[in-house]
């Protein structure tokens, strides 16, 4: 199509402002409709999952190989350490067995109603999904594998995050050190409760604990049962004071190096409360009765 040079140059000059406007429009749409953006994100993540798995596999093999090589240089020391640890663990094994036995007996005597076993799936971390300011990972399993929003992610040694977005073959797990992550926790030794808040360091902060019951250095931190889908008692880490008056949680599983996550679905253990607990049932008013002073339907 023959277009005069002047018109073409004018159009070319308009391309950049036009694209800037599109970018601004997209930002505004993203703010107004976060769900749309989320869907687009998970769509892209779903498409990318196979490619990323291909890339992630050799990378993980490589890091394992490096670890093996490092281990090989200190075999004797490692052996001695493992032998000592094995001995301690054998002791604990006996303790655990007898405790399990005792627990079983007590539960039988109490007619304990057994809790349903949580189901879980295991997924490989295929991408860092945190961006510059966040701490989150993408795993290569999604709703097709039974993962839902709000599921709990456990790394090798403890609680590490929660599923915030799901696609068909991928899910995003918000880690405990993200600033958006605020988890109610229970402190085992001092029996206090607190909120564990991510502050972008590997050690999330402890906040909102009672002023007359400070966390004790070194005590275990487990999840509190105050929020839905997160059961109480999952191991998180230990308390450590980096400064006087500034306790942090040293997680059992470092959120910086995770390659495989177990995603637990605790929905089945969530109990529905009975409807309107402790509330007086409303009396249906007959047409002849005077209007109640507490009526919500009045127009005054």
């Amino acid at each position: 199509m023959p277009v005069s040079i002047q018109i073409r140059q004018a159009l070319e000059r308009l391309v950049l402002p036009f694209n800037l406007l599109i970018a601004i429009a997209i930002i505004l749409i993203g703010q107004a409709e976060p769900r749309l953006v989320q869907a687009a994100r998970m769509f892209l993540a779903d498409i990318m999952t196979p490619v990323r798995s291909i890339v992630a596999e050799p990378a993980m093999q490589f890091s394992f190989a490096v670890k093996d090589l490092r281990g090989a240089t200190q075999l004797a020391a490692e052996n001695a350490r493992l032998r000592a640890e094995n001995e301690t663990l054998r002791g604990w094994y006996d303790v655990a067995l007898s405790l399990a036995q005792e627990n079983e007996t007590l539960k039988t005597n109490l007619h304990w109603i057994p809790e349903s076993e949580p189901s879980f799936v295991t997924g490989r971390v295929i991408a860092d999904a945190g961006g510059l300011y966040g701490h989150a990972v993408l795993i290569g399993a999604g709703t097709d594998s039974g993962i839902h929003d709000g599921n709990i992610a456990l790394a090798a040694d403890g609680f590490i995050g929660r599923v915030t977005e799901t696609g068909h073959h991928s899910a995003r797990v918000l880690l405990i050190n993200d600033t958006e992550s605020k988890i109610p926790v229970t402190l085992e030794a001092s029996h206090g409760s607190a909120i564990m808040t991510g502050d972008r360091t590997p050690t999330p902060r402890l906040m909102y604990y009672a002023q007359d019951n400070h966390p004790i250095e070194g005590e275990r931190v487990v999840t509190g049962g105050q929020i839905d889908l997160l059961p109480a008692g999952l191991p998180v880490g230990t308390v450590h004071y980096i400064q006087p008056g500034k306790p942090v949680v040293v997680p059992f599983s470092s959120p910086d190096h995770i390659s495989i996550l177990r995603i637990f679905n605790f929905t089945t253990t969530h109990t529905e409360p009975p409807e309107a607990p402790g509330r007086i049932p409303q009396i249906r008013r007959r047409p002849g009765m005077p209007p109640s002073p507490f009526s919500m339907t009045g127009n005054g």
Binding site: I26, I27, A40, R41, L44, G131, L132
Partner: peptide, 9 residues
């Protein structure tokens, strides 16, 4: 989209 930053920035 890949970096999970606010879209468009």
């Amino acid at each position: 989209l890949v970096g999970f930053a606010p879209l468009g920035i």
